[in-house]
Structure formats: structure tokens, C-alpha cells
């Protein structure tokens, strides 16, 4: 049994621990020891490799949902620009 939390196999850490390190790994935010454990585990564990790929894929699919039909310029842009220019002109006096 490995339920005592003391991991003696080559995987270094449990899959359940590796899974929780994925976002830190993708953000280059792991410390050296955790990075070493994570990469060693990943090199031997197909399940965690797939999980990492799927998180990456999820991020890509989520980014594709951005609503690109939003107006680039606000409807009141001319008004905003006038306000900005009036203020700029006032300051130069």
C-alpha cells in the first residue's frame, strides 16, 4: 500500500499530487525540487502526460471562446476624444 503518503516508487510523487502542480508548471512557478519531481513523474506516467495535454487543450479551447464581435471602439468615442482634447488644450494655456 502506498496510502501512508511515503512514496518509494520511481514516480516520486502520486498522480494526485502531480495533477495539482500542472498550473504552476505551465506558469514556470515550480521551485526546483517540485519541478524535478514533476518532470520525473511525467516522464514515467502516461496518465499525467495526457492530463497535462488536456489542460493545455482546455486553455486553447477556452481562449477560442472570446467574443470577437465586441465593438473595438465605444459608441461615444468622438465624445471621449473631444473631452480628452479639451482637457489637453486647457492645460497648455
Amino acid at each position: 500500500m502506498t496510502d501512508d503518503g511515503f512514496i518509494q516508487n520511481d514516480l516520486r510523487i502520486r498522480c494526485s499530487d502531480a495533477i495539482e502542480l500542472v498550473t504552476d508548471y505551465l506558469d514556470d512557478a515550480l521551485n526546483d525540487a517540485d519541478l524535478d519531481d514533476f518532470q520525473t513523474h511525467l516522464g514515467l506516467c502516461e496518465g499525467c502526460q495526457v492530463f497535462l495535454d488536456q489542460v493545455r487543450k482546455t486553455v486553447r479551447l477556452v481562449s477560442d471562446t472570446a467574443d470577437t464581435t465586441v465593438d473595438v471602439m465605444p459608441a461615444n468615442f468622438d465624445e471621449l476624444l473631444s473631452a480628452l482634447q479639451e482637457k489637453g488644450a486647457a492645460e497648455e494655456i
Partner: peptide
């Protein structure tokens, strides 16, 4: 992040993938 009941390997025990997840990606 993953249901603990889905992480139960036949030899390694709890906390390990029994097999790689379905490759929907």
C-alpha cells in the same frame, strides 16, 4: 482536480491513474 475515485491503480493504489484518461483532446 480529479475525482479521487478515478485515481485508483490496481497495483499502486489510491492516488494513481488506473490507466491514461480518455484522449478527448
Amino acid at each position: 482536480s480529479v475525482d479521487p475515485d478515478c485515481l485508483n491503480h490496481v497495483d499502486l493504489g489510491r492516488g494513481y491513474w488506473p490507466e491514461a484518461p480518455f484522449r478527448w483532446d
